[in-house]
Computed example of a mutant assay.
Amino acid sequence: MNDVMRAPTVVAVVSEELFAEFFSDADATRLRVVAESLGGAFVRVDDLADAELSEARIVITSWGIGPFDEAVLATLPTLELIAHTGATIKPFATDELFDQGILVTQAGAGMARSVAEVSLTFTLALLHRVPEMHNALRAGSGWYDAAATGVQREILGARVAVIGASRTGRAYLELIRALGAEPLLVDPTVDARESKALGAELMSLDDALRRAEIVAVHAPTLPETHHLIGRRELALLPDGAGIVNTARSWLVDEAALIDELRDGRLSAAIDVFDEEPLAADSPLRGLPGVLVTPHRAAGTSQGRLRQGRIIVDEVAAFAAGRPLSHVVSRDQLSSMA
């Protein structure tokens, strides 16, 4: 029996463009093999409404998917697993989903290296005053002004406060240690022994901020981490320090940071914002000591393929009755952005 006559058992609600980014030919073939092992076919669609869902046991999702509420779940009577190619599942996870015992897994681990490398890029750029010099040259305001540029520094021996030993935070720690930085770790879930194993000195947030030349935020999104770096915390930083944020804007008080950046006391490199897309009139677009990117830190080709491979591995494990490695529970939703 060919795929045309089989009802889909594995449905990927992923655009054609993103599907090609996430899944190599070999991994796409693996998805078809899994679907056949479940007695049906594999299908890729742009929208759930485009697929026959009566026998779908696995749905693969990407960005833009809507909530799996009672009405949607009614069209998926055999659904057992949702495998999300991204990290956070908040846009689509519902109580009904968990109430029905449907498993949810995600591929956030595949992003860690990509985001960590961008955080390292930002760190080096701020230490070496790249935003100030680049923006000055672009504006045509002269060749070199040491006073305006600020002191240029190497990462060797630089004190870098890492806020959160998340997957990305740990990947970032590995990179900056290899280049000779002196990491200061802030994470209440990590003890001194684990911090030492990570090659970092564990300390309180205030102490780390007072010593830091760079602050890189990698903490989870929790009620208690909202504006973890606020006006008071920013004031603790020494003059010339830099803020690196490739995590979530939730963690840093954007308005307070803009005030510090306007004064020229701090610099910043930011990939995430309170308003996305970033408003055309946002001060962050024009301040001299600021480097901004459009929430693309995880967008490497290798990272995308890692995410896809994680999903295929999870789907294959589920079909074979093996435990999944990246399941997200209802309780874990509160720590997702």
Score class of each variant (00 low, 15 high):
Asn2Ile: 09
Val4Ile: 13
Met5Asn: 12
Val13His: 08
Glu17His: 15
Glu17Cys: 02
Leu18Thr: 08
Phe19Met: 03
Asp25Trp: 09
Val33His: 10
Ser37Pro: 05
Leu38Lys: 00
Asp46Pro: 08
Glu52Val: 13
Leu53Thr: 10
Leu53Met: 08
Ser62Val: 01
Ser62Met: 02
Asp69Lys: 10
Val72Tyr: 02
Ala74His: 10
Pro77Ser: 10
Thr78Trp: 00
Thr78His: 12
Thr94Gly: 09
Leu97Gly: 05
Ile102Met: 07
Val104Arg: 04
Gly108Trp: 01
Gly110Glu: 00
Val115Ser: 01
Ala116Cys: 06
Thr121Gly: 12
Thr121Met: 14
Val130Tyr: 12
Arg138Phe: 05
Ser141Glu: 05
Trp143Tyr: 10
Asp145Arg: 00
Gly150Gln: 02
Val151Phe: 15
Ala158Thr: 07
Val160Cys: 05
Arg167Ser: 15
Gly169Glu: 07
Ile176Glu: 03
Gly180Cys: 11
Ala181Gln: 09
Glu182Met: 11
Val186Thr: 01
Pro188Glu: 09
Arg193Pro: 04
Ala197Cys: 00
Glu201Tyr: 02
Met203Ser: 12
Leu209Arg: 04
Val217Cys: 08
Thr225Gln: 06
His226Glu: 14
Arg231Thr: 06
Ala235Asp: 15
Leu237Arg: 04
Asp239Tyr: 05
Ile243Trp: 03
Ala247Met: 01
Asp253Lys: 01
Ala255Thr: 13
Ile258Thr: 15
Asp263Met: 10
Gly264Asn: 11
Leu266Asn: 04
Leu284Ile: 12
Leu287Pro: 01
Val290Arg: 04
Thr293Leu: 12
Thr300Tyr: 11
Ile311Gln: 02
Phe318Val: 02
Val328Tyr: 04
Asp331His: 11
Met336Cys: 12
